[in-house]
Simulated scan of single mutants.
Amino acid sequence: MSVGNWEGVSEFAAVAESGSFTGAARKLGISTAQVSRQVSALERRLSTKLLYRTTRKVSVTEVGQIYYQHCRQVLDGLAEAERAVTDLQQVPRGRLRLTAPVTYGETTLAPLINDFALRYPELQVEMELTNQKLDLVAEGYDLAIRLGRLSDSSMMARRLGTRTLYVCAAPQYLSSHGEPHSLSELAQHNCLQGTLDYWRFREQGRARNIRVSGSIRCNSGRALVDAALKGIGIVQLPDYYVDEDLQAGRLVSLLAHYREEDDGIWGVYPHNRHLSPKVSMLLDYLGASIGQ
Rank of each mutant, 00 (worst) to 15 (best):
Q34Y: 05
Q34H: 10
Q34V: 12
V35F: 07
V35T: 07
S36L: 15
S36Y: 13
S36V: 15
R37V: 11
Q38I: 03
V39Q: 08
V39K: 09
A41Y: 01
A41K: 06
R44D: 13
R44P: 04
R44H: 12
R44G: 13
R44V: 11
R45G: 14
R45M: 13
R45N: 13
S47D: 10
S47F: 02
T48H: 11
T48Y: 07
T48D: 11
K49Y: 04
L50V: 09
L50N: 06
L50S: 11
L51G: 12
L51A: 12
L51Q: 10
Y52H: 14
Y52E: 12
Y52W: 07
Y52F: 13
T54I: 11
T54K: 05
T55C: 02
R56G: 06
K57M: 11
K57E: 14
V58M: 02
S59G: 10
S59V: 15
S59F: 11
S59K: 12
V60T: 13
V60G: 08
T61P: 09
T61I: 09
E62V: 11
E62H: 06
E62R: 13
E62N: 09
V63F: 07
V63A: 12
G64R: 00
G64A: 04
Q65E: 12
Q65I: 03
Y67T: 03
Y67P: 01
Y68C: 04
Y68L: 13
Q69M: 03
Q69Y: 00
C71N: 02
C71P: 00
C71A: 15
R72G: 00
R72M: 08
Q73I: 03
Q73D: 03
L75N: 01
L75I: 14
L75E: 05
D76L: 14
D76S: 13
D76P: 01
D76F: 07
G77H: 04
G77E: 05
G77W: 01
G77F: 01
L78T: 01
L78E: 02
L78Y: 02
L78K: 03
L78R: 05
E80C: 05
A81T: 09
A81C: 09
E82R: 15
E82G: 13
E82W: 12
R83L: 04
R83K: 02
A84G: 02
V85N: 03
V85E: 08
T86G: 15
T86A: 15
T86C: 15
T86S: 15
D87T: 13
D87Q: 09
Q89G: 06
V91E: 15
V91C: 15
R93E: 14
G94F: 01
R95V: 13
R95E: 09
R95I: 11
R95G: 05
R95S: 08
L96T: 07
L96K: 06
R97V: 09
R97Q: 08
P101F: 00
P101S: 01
T103Q: 07
T103C: 07
Y104V: 07
Y104S: 05
Y104F: 15
G105H: 00
G105I: 03
E106Y: 03
E106V: 06
T108R: 14
T108W: 05
L109P: 06
L109G: 03
L109I: 10
L109W: 03
A110C: 05
A110S: 09
P111V: 04
P111E: 02
P111L: 07
P111M: 05
L112H: 04
L112M: 13
L112Y: 02
L112I: 05
L112N: 02
L112A: 08
